[in-house]
Design a binder for these strands. Structure first.
Lengths: 112, 112
DNA sequence: ATAATAGTTAGGCATGCGCTTAACTATTAT
DNA sequence: ATAATAGTTAAGCGCATGCCTAACTATTAT
């Protein structure tokens, strides 16, 4: 029985890889077939399949096989956990800015 | 000169670890000193230092040393890249739901 | 029936990652 | 001056991750 933190962990781990992120981005447009997803990458099919498995067991993606072709889709709301967590990690300064309707300007201080 | 994708990659990689996430969560409350950050974990100080270094080079965290004590803070807006990316990965269905003000109900279909 | 297509399984390899211990530096307290 | 505190550096170890090739299954096309 996976909880909030486990879900988040799976999602974040899944998204930590550029290939998998690219797949998610592709699927955000529309569902796609495995070979279609593999095409843009210079990587073997099995390698991409592994990425798909990671995405699927993170709950980011669903897939269904019709005949010999598997169609993969982005799971609506799959990224909600992340969105939720993100909302909680705002600094006090940002919360205050929210209340005031201010958009913070950030400067990245260089180490001296 | 790091671009959007590199930033995102660093941020997501950094957040893919539970320890680092816990540190971020702690720092969202208020800045803290290294030993203070290390305390909750059953892990050597050097191990935690490495995590801090990852967080820092992902731009999630800043730190300054006064005397022998280093204070670490969450960088305001550091999570913006992620928030931004997240916004782009909404499915067409979700976009439509947004327009209609509908909150989608999700069911996770089990594989037969 | 044969061949081509779409995906899958298995095994192996290199590299990265999270962690440890040991030894060291720099600052502050006694 | 000595000792305690706060953090740092370096080296090494084991396991996870991302990738590959080779061989295989199942479906569709000829």
């Amino acid at each position: 029985m996976p909880n909030y933190y486990d879900d988040l962990d799976l999602v974040l781990r899944a998204l930590a890889d550029p290939t998998r992120r690219a797949v998610v981005e592709r699927l955000a447009k529309s569902p796609a077939v495995v070979s279609e997803l593999a095409a843009p990458f210079s990587m073997s099919l099995p390698a991409l399949m592994q990425h798909l498995r990671v995405l699927e067991s993170a709950g980011l993606v669903t897939s269904h096989k019709h005949g010999r072709v598997r169609t993969v889709s982005l799971r609506p709301g799959a990224l909600d956990v992340l969105h939720l967590w993100l909302g909680e990690q705002r600094t006090p300064a940002e919360h205050q800015a929210d209340r005031l309707g201010i958009h913070l300007t950030r400067t990245i201080p260089e180490e001296p």
